[in-house]
Design a protein around this nucleic acid. Structure first.
Lengths: 343, 343
DNA sequence: AAGGCTTATGCAATCGTTTGCATGAGTTCA
DNA sequence: TGAACTCATGCAAACGATTGCATAAGCCTT
């Protein structure tokens, strides 16, 4: 059973009566190299009969390319991020490329170690979701030559990336909320991250521009978890002048906020409106169904893989400033309502 | 930038004035080989100064081991499975081992191709969740020598695995339901899989033993998705004698069943009780909070990694029949109620 | 029929480590 | 002082594929 002995290119060569180089050439079919029809067929047949399979490790050593791309994901258990990863893998597969992924343990040191190790095994990297210590990570990545693309994650430095237009997304949400009459709007987000920072500054700009009511406690720094949002919204709701609506920077947090509000005896959306960002499946089935700003996962994954592949194949140094911005979309469901009492 | 030129062991050797072999030996610190304190220190220092990093591909080619373990997951977007993967990675990391994962596209051919490719890159494999075409996959795996462990996935053949005691889990659920007075109990599960088969036959055995009411329509073959369960429960509820309780083989399905029942105007748990299996986070926050049979994710992941590591390190052929069975646990929340009308 | 040209294939070096074996220096003891 | 032994290190051969260069065979042309 474990005596399984893999057949190498040399075995095939011997059995077919040709040299190893020839076997390699027929197997790779590189354009420009001519192999006679006869040997072509013969070698292929022998390889098949022997059950030859390429040893990709050896190939990688010689060519300095593993042919693999990797994705490092902030939290593989976050529905939005894991869906993004799944889509990315699906698209890569369709293009004949293998994608492997890793969950980023939530501290800078581990992620750095993980990244360093992934750079050895992968030709290119997808960074999915805001990472702990974003900036250090991208500095690290730039030092090495490994091509990478950041997805749903907003480093400050110019970096190949694909994101929604954050300002537009926040604008969509706030326009909708103010149309419903809300003037006191809370913000729940993990402000430790550059991606959330972009959202926050758009948020604050609009609050100011619309001259909405604002209190510094309306900003609740909150980790990317359901549980975190539960306590955050409860803090918001016990304020002297609680917000009548809350914007969360992810659907998971929004779902937590809804749960937290109910637990505290506030009805959603009657007593408080909640809006999220992402549009995860669960939001369609939750009670009330979640109003949210949709990030188009499929488009983003496609764009990211395309861009990454460009970077990988490019031989000369590429401009690292390229970024792709896609449009978010307001999905109205039932977690937001017109404000019904004195604002 | 892309002119980054990695420093090899030869560079270090040259700079330190020793041979490559020596450098390798001090770096690997294999017990039994003696290196003088002086060179030890010197080499380490030079390597450090030059910023040497091991090329794991070359090392893998020579040693025939990549030092990597892989996990293939039925659906990376399934909260239970992705949590299992995350735990497995965490545990592997803590032991200094890197774990990479892939989502299994949902058809046999793709999975086979994926598996074949993973066998080249990984020293060992974790199979997480029921797979399409289970049996073929395990046959394939056995042919090769690659060690693997199946987790939360129940092939028929003797195979290294870790699972809950399925019969006990179903027993826990049915005892609870019958204690609440239910005699008509529906079953929602993806019966195409061996894992679900084990649950189904336990279910049918107990239904028979307890002489509960049974109709073949009470069995609703349903894919592992929320959406599938929505239509399944609606089919159940329009039966002439609809079940008063429904057992789902995953929490995701149970959540779908709850949503489907509400949509059809049936209150949960007042009109129909729903129980799931897994105990995912979402079930704690859903309305009503989900009663379920808990699979202890942490214990299972730990056991799986331990077992896999044994198999990987073992040089002689191991008994492939070893399986680890852990105990499930009934988690009572609020999606099941005493049956209130004529059974 | 011989020289020139194309074309298919073989040869051997290479990628960066690891590791069995050989060797030279250093130590100990008679 | 020299023989017997350690012990640390160097040497070179792997691991399995790829690829630039050389070469043999075949064909065409004059």
């Amino acid at each position: 059973m474990s005596t399984y002995k893999p057949v190498t290119i040399a075995d095939v060569a011997r059995a077919a009566g040709v040299s190893a180089g020839t076997v390699s050439r027929v197997l790779n079919r590189r354009s420009g190299v001519k192999i006679s029809e006869a040997t072509q067929k013969h070698v292929l047949e022998v390889a098949d009969r022997l059950g030859y399979q390429l040893n990709p490790v050896a190939s990688a050593l010689r060519t300095q390319q593993t042919g693999l791309i990797g994705a490092i994901i902030r939290d593989i258990n976050d529905p939005f991020l894991s869906l993004m990863a799944r889509e990315a893998q699906r698209i890569a597969h369709a293009m004949g490329i293998e994608l492997l992924m890793g969950h980023a343990e939530y501290d800078l040191l581990t992620v750095q170690r993980q990244l360093r190790f992934m750079q050895h095994w992968f030709d290119g990297l997808l960074i999915i979701g805001d990472m702990p210590g974003d900036q250090e990570i991208f500095d690290d990545l730039n030092k090495r030559g490994t091509p990478y693309v950041a997805v749903a994650c907003g480093p400050n430095s110019p970096t190949p990336r694909v994101n929604i237009d954050e300002a537009q997304g926040i604008g969509l949400a706030l326009d909708y909320l103010t149309d419903l009459g809300h003037r006191r709007i809370g913000f729940i987000g993990d402000v430790g991250h550059a991606g959330t920072q972009a959202r926050l500054s758009a948020f604050q700009g609009i609050i100011h521009a619309k001259t909405l009511d604002w209190h510094e406690d309306y900003l609740q720094p909150t980790p990317y978890t359901r549980a975190g949002a539960i306590t955050s919204i409860q803090r918001l709701l016990t304020l002297p002048h609680p917000p009548t609506a809350v914007l969360c920077t992810s659907d998971l947090q929004a779902l937590g906020a809804v749960a937290g509000a109910w637990q505290a005896g506030w009805r959603v959306p009657e007593a408080v409106s909640v809006i999220g960002i992402d549009d995860i499946e669960e939001g369609r089935y939750s009670y009330p169904p979640l109003t949210t700003i949709r990030q188009p996962v499929g488009d983003m994954a496609t764009a990211a893989i395309d861009l990454l592949l460009c970077l990988v194949r490019e031989t000369e140094p590429v401009d690292t400033g390229q970024s792709i911005i896609v449009a978010p979309e307001l999905i109205v469901r039932r977690s937001c309502a017109r404000v019904s009492f004195g604002g």
